[in-house]
Nucleic acid binder design. Structure first.
Lengths: 192, 192, 192, 192
DNA sequence: TATGAATGAGTGTTCATTCAT
DNA sequence: GATGAATGAACACTCATTCAT
């Protein structure tokens, strides 16, 4: 085992165990065990369990940005509809291929109800996603590819649908994700 | 404190604490404390903590039925659109007025990942909601008030949007719930 | 259920549960449950759990007397050997047919190590059994059917063997009880 | 307190307390207290109370073997009778000097009624003792020092007597152990 | 006679954390 | 860098016992 690997081992083990058991039930003993180290060793890298969880939290949420999935500058008059559909489907597929991630995020979302700093970051993240869709739709309007109408509501509808499709998939509830998302997109592209 | 109230006190305290701390962190000590009784007294009414949680679970989920919120037999050709909109808004308002409920439900949803019986009931409940919307839309088609199109996808879109609006409201994320839901309804009423 | 039955129900249930679970693990809840009554009802008949156990103890040990199994006055010159053998075998058979009894007695024997009053009574009971055999053998000597020798040792050998045969049978250890007892008897009848 | 002693302290304390209070009443709190450590410290060495008791069980029963007390290969034609007598008396003396041991064993015997693995080991141990005596007597027959007769019954008589002498001594019942054992030996050496 | 309701004390067990090494 | 050893606090749970009714 090369030097510095321990740190990554801890994080990997923690992620896996949090996904399976949740934030509180994933104990330091289990994490240390899975990482192949002793319990106090964790304290060398993280000052407390909370610090470790905080690290995981930022690991997951700092990267979760709208522009990463829907890069506004690639949208043109011609590809707008297709790109919006494809980007959304790709995001869904990403989660589909990595269900652990979604589980962990879900655990943090619930835990956010008890920890303000998580709550703020989470709200900010989700809000930015809704805002992202709004920016995108306004861009569409400027491109003349989206009719007038309540852009805010449309953007929120997109965000809410996309977000909840993954939740339902995570829970194992059969949802025709492609069809639903396609329809949602075709709706916001049309007029009302 | 009048006799016979203890049982209800336990349930009320449990609900409040589960909402605040989650299923596992809400300890029997806390519940007993809040109920103003001793810990073993809980065991007089519930054989275990799990039994108590089970009771809460059924208390919340047995009543959560589509027909309660969207009574299909009241929908006519003339009121369809308005009723669908109103019923949805009323459901949202109900949760808005009782945010604790939603928090608890969320905790159960997360816990469902670790307890199969919850998972099944939960999936069943949510699935029935999606199916309910589908039945409603088919009814609308028969009334001639809804154009042809992918009814399943439309129904799921409705379900996903409505469900996630409440989640976002719960988290304190500003969502124009009325506008979004109204648009979603107007969409499924139109053609594609 | 006729009046006064409750008392007997308690005792019967207690005996059965003590046999199965031991003195301490047989809880008042279990006993009340098995007896079909409420827990506090037991307190109407017995002032405490200890009082109930005391009652059981005396129920079992007050009756356990040597003369009951080996009635000295029935022993004659002619039947001495046969009677001694038969009486012993009958005692063994009695326990064989009622293994619960032996289990309970065993539990009390162990518990006696912690409760002096049991200890004394127990020692007295077992000692009396040994003394009984001694009296019997002296009687045999007077009848001229037993040769001289260390009567005390012979009597104790009889007592120890008979007692331990039942213990081994209780534990489920295969012992040729009839053969062993017969030999022990034939031994004490002979000379050394 | 020197390092590494804790483990032994736990075992010693556990043995002492089990001897005095029995397996179930000897609580981890008591044991920890007596050992001068905290309760969770026990869990560092034993995964559960049951694991600790299992350890004690094997500590006591794995060493209790017939050959240890009656080494068959040392028995010759000339010393047979004396050796058999002496070995038995030595075993008795060992227990006499260490009455705690016998108490603990007794507690395990009772507990065996509720734990199969103990029951099996216990039956096996006691059976092997009876078998040991049988092997020894057959050896005696081959040496020509023991007359014909029911060897099995004689062996069992020896085992039962020896075993029960210690029990009675443990209970504090006066038994002429030397005389009884000597007679038992002289009996099996003779013919019937 | 008997019970529903409740409790204090205690059980085995787990956890995050500490500290000397 | 990392660990063996240990702990205080908490947890779910059980028990004998009490008391008003």
């Amino acid at each position: 085992m090369a030097k510095g690997d321990t740190y990554q081992h801890i994080i990997d083990s923690a992620l896996a165990l949090v996904a399976e058991y949740g934030l509180e039930k994933a104990s330091l003993s289990m994490i240390a065990n899975k990482a192949g180290i002793s319990k106090p060793a964790i304290y060398y890298y993280f000052s407390s369990k909370e610090a470790l969880l905080d690290h995981l939290f930022h690991l997951l949420f700092d990267d979760y940005q709208f522009d990463h999935y829907f890069p506004l500058d690639t949208y043109t008059k011609d590809n707008f509809s297709t790109l919006l559909t494809d980007n959304g489907l790709q995001l869904l597929q990403e989660y589909d291929e990595n269900p652990e991630l979604l589980k962990i995020i879900n655990h943090f979302i619930v835990y956010a109800g008890q920890k303000q700093s998580y709550d703020e970051k989470l709200k900010q993240t989700l809000t930015e996603f809704l805002d992202g869709f709004k920016r995108l739709l306004i861009h569409g309007q400027q491109l003349g590819v989206i009719k007038t109408g309540d852009v805010t509501a449309k953007a929120q509808l997109l965000g809410l649908v996309l977000d909840n499709i993954s939740s339902y998939l995570l829970m194992g509830i059969k949802v025709e994700s492609t069809a639903v998302w396609t329809q949602a997109v075709s709706y916001v592209m049309g007029d009302d």
